[in-house]
């Protein structure tokens, strides 16, 4: 059985690192893994998405509409943009933050209100203010680890595997704070 995870957000939010941690964790448990990433122009503040698929044998490297078991959205509008990728019983994890796209900044479009409530009408949604927790830990860059910790239960793997993989994937100097951040997300109320 293949598990399909998507990480969506805004270029620069660190979706790449998050997908690599999930992929490596799956690989360490003997799964076949495929990860698909976005590089180049789209990374410059645009909407970005990465995919992680793992299981006995994985062919396609991307997750498609109607296939995602879990979507980790680092921003609300991106959660809305990709929600239709969820399976019927898929889970949406949202980092509760708002980053206005240029179409909103210029006034051409309005940022939708009540995104999370609207998503809850159709999907199982868990929201967390990852930025707040990251800042409490003293480093806004560990936001990814907080949110990943918050999503971990729905992706699978035991806590040990997660913490080991975080340690082996993030820059060596930031292992401790990233593990702490992961634990804060992991233990946060769902």
């Amino acid at each position: 059985m293949t598990k399909n995870i998507m990480i969506v957000g805004v270029g620069g939010q660190g979706t790449l690192l998050t997908s690599r941690i999930i992929g490596r964790a799956a690989l360490s448990l003997g799964c076949d893994v495929k990860i698909s990433e976005v590089h180049g122009m789209a990374q410059r503040g645009g909407s970005v998405v990465t995919y992680v698929r793992f299981g006995d044998k994985v062919s396609e490297p991307v997750v498609e509409e109607g296939q995602a078991d879990v979507i980790i959205a680092f921003e609300r509008l991106e959660a809305q943009r990709y929600a239709h990728f969820l399976k019927k019983d898929g889970v949406m994890i949202v980092n509760d933050c708002r980053i206005d796209p240029m179409t909103v900044v210029t006034g051409a479009k309005e940022y939708p209100e009540g995104i999370i409530d609207a998503l809850r009408a159709e999907h199982t949604v868990y929201a967390i203010d990852g930025q707040k927790i990251a800042l409490e830990l003293g480093n806004s860059k560990v936001l990814n680890s907080v949110v990943l910790g918050y999503a971990a239960e729905y992706i699978g793997f035991d806590k040990e595997t997660w913490l080991d993989t975080v340690a082996s994937t993030v820059p060596p100097k930031t292992v401790e704070i990233n593990q702490k951040a992961f634990a804060r997300g992991y233990e946060a109320e769902h």
């Binding site: 789209a42 503040g45 645009g46 909407s47 509008l77 991106e78 796209p101 240029m102 940022y111 939708p112």
Partner: peptide, 8 residues
Amino acid sequence: APARPPIL
């Protein structure tokens, strides 16, 4: 959803 094209 309002488009989010890449930006400087």
